[in-house]
Design a protein around this nucleic acid. Sequence first.
DNA 1: TACATATGGTAAAGCACCCTTTACCAAATG
DNA 2: CATTTGGTAAAGGGTGCTTTACCATATGTA
Lengths: 153, 153
Amino acid sequence: MTHDPRKTFEAARAASTGELLLRAARLLDESALERLRAQPGAPPFRPAHTRLFPHLDFEGVRATELAARLGISKQAVGQLLGDLIEWGMVEQIPDPTDGRARLVRYSSSGAEALSHGLGILAGIEAEVRARLGDQAMQTFREALQTVIDVLER
Amino acid sequence: MTHDPRKTFEAARAASTGELLLRAARLLDESALERLRAQPGAPPFRPAHTRLFPHLDFEGVRATELAARLGISKQAVGQLLGDLIEWGMVEQIPDPTDGRARLVRYSSSGAEALSHGLGILAGIEAEVRARLGDQAMQTFREALQTVIDVLER
DNA sequence: TACATATGGTAAAGCACCCTTTACCAAATG
DNA sequence: CATTTGGTAAAGGGTGCTTTACCATATGTA
């Protein structure tokens, strides 16, 4: 039996969990954004905006803090926040502890939009869970966390 | 016991498997590209280039076919292929069945680079597998495939 | 207190990336 | 011979950042 390195390539590529992961994430990203914007009256969210959401809350965060967490400049954050404010997703209040600073937090209509977005993700997740079962779903989550741990180290 | 919708938000967000998936994929994407380019003499691959790799082989593919698979214009593919040719990753040969067409395929030095890239992915995958075990790894792969199925439908 | 420096934020310009659009040529197809 | 198809060339546009420059408030220090 001869050994064809080309076949080995193909086999290795077909087996790559990494490609599966990237493909699944890209699909999720596109799909979630697509469904989000399909909502009538929904602002034209772009991926850059959605990356802010996990770091926003109701207590208020500084733009500087967001920039640090996302690893981008505070000016870039400022541009994205400008959109979100314009769309009514978030509002700014003065930071009571620092006259220079402002706190940005979800507005009440922003909370609704967020809720809708989370609902979309939850819907997809539920569909996956229905096929996998609870136990495999738990394993899935642990595996994802392991990947994150390995890559963040 | 009162029900605070804010707390519910936070709990729902913390539990989002979707965010885990997106985060893991983004890390993998960045990490793989970073390690790929860390190789001395490695061409300055960009994400757009790496997305071509899974669709290239040793038999040869048409640019039009690549464009169709990636869902982008053939001109866009042409630009990316121009880089890969310049970097010696791929080579073009005339399509024996069609005088207008050309087939693009991995060059021998491209095969080495590909092999190195696959090695990087395999290394990450092995590290994850070592922590999860073979069985959980299998579950992980099935879960990823399920996500893809759900979203592609 | 006065001043230098650090920090939070904004404004404007510009850049890299990744794609599209428009236009075109050459070979294949009917 | 008209039309379709594979491919190329050039220009341009949207996105998501950075860089440079600046203002206002805070903070540490002589």
